[in-house]
């Protein structure tokens, strides 16, 4: 029973990380960009959510009206920069690492390194949950799971059903062939990066609903989020969601069966094993 509750709580927690991983995985798979600035966008969106919600008294969820368009633009602009300078996959990793540490410092200088939590008055979700029998689904991570499912299903549909999506897939597989088919890869890439930015804004809104903001959070996220990207398969959106749920459930289970300190050991050993034996992820796509 406790194992079931722990697995459920863990899996829901993992869905938030899956949401963080989604944009990263898409950009990596289709644009060949490893954008650590994605974490900077999540962090900034988290602080903006905190700032907007506390200053206006609005529900934190309502703040996405502002943060989603903003992060769409930021994500698109960063991608334009990568395009402009013809940045390679590895160099994008280094450059975005630079952007990330700049953001961490700027956020520290603005909001201080102190813990920031949404006050209970505007964030009732922190202590709420949905009960099904004796199982409890904590509201903050349930919201994250809801958004994660919506975004993952939408991305999967767009990628498979629309012309732009199929063009992106072609582009991800072979840039030259895709260009030959007359796809404006720059525009598509910028739009995709914008969408990834928008997903970062949503993840950034969800984090402070359940957690405490500090500027060095990205460094705590990086390990787990990359674990999910790799286990899910790079560019595989549904795989990312499954991997998030799986990693979360395993962490939760390991935490109650052994100790929480054992979880990172198990999760990252799993990552190494997956890289060695299943480099394309645990959930191979049809025909992939």
């Amino acid at each position: 029973m406790i194992e079931l509750q722990a697995a459920v709580s863990g899996a829901l927690n993992g869905s938030l990380f899956a949401l963080m991983a989604l944009g990263l995985s898409l950009a990596w798979g289709f644009l060949k960009v490893i954008n650590l600035a994605h974490f900077a966008m999540i962090l900034t969106a988290g602080y903006l959510t905190f700032e907007l919600a506390t200053s206006t008294g609005l529900s934190p969820i309502a703040t996405i009206v502002a943060t989603v368009p903003l992060m769409f633009v930021v994500g698109a602009l960063i991608q334009l920069g990568y395009e402009r300078f013809g940045v390679s996959e590895l160099n994008s990793l280094l450059i975005s690492y630079g952007l990330l540490i700049i953001t961490v410092q700027v956020v520290t200088n603005i909001w201080t390194a102190d813990f920031q939590r949404l006050p209970t008055e505007i964030n009732p979700y922190a202590s709420e949950s949905v009960a099904v029998g004796s199982l409890r689904f904590p509201m903050p991570t349930l919201l994250a799971a809801g958004f994660a499912v919506i975004l993952v299903v939408t991305s999967a549909l767009v990628l498979e059903r629309t012309y732009a999506g199929r063009a992106l897939q072609a582009f991800g597989q072979d840039r030259e062939i895709a260009s030959a088919f007359g796809i404006d890869h720059r525009l598509l890439g910028v739009l995709l990066a914008g969408a990834a930015g928008a997903s970062a804004a949503i993840a950034g809104m969800l984090f402070p609903i359940g957690g405490t903001l500090t500027p060095d959070l990205p460094f705590e996220w990086i390990g787990q989020v990359f674990a999910i990207v790799i286990l899910g398969g790079i560019g595989n959106v549904t795989g990312t969601l499954y991997a998030g749920l799986l990693v979360g459930a395993i962490s939760g289970l390991v935490a109650v069966i052994w100790t929480p300190s054992t979880s990172p050991f198990v999760v990252f050993s799993l990552v190494v094993l997956a890289l060695v034996f299943r480099p394309k992820g645990l959930f191979p796509q049809k025909g992939g």
């Binding site: 996959e89 590895l90 990359f226 990172p264 890289l275």
Partner: peptide, 17 residues
């Protein structure tokens, strides 16, 4: 390439744990 980079990213987490 990048997969090796990520493999090496996981190692310090395992050792710290």
């Amino acid at each position: 390439g990048e997969i090796f980079a990520l493999l090496t990213l996981a190692i310090p987490f395992i050792l710290a744990s």
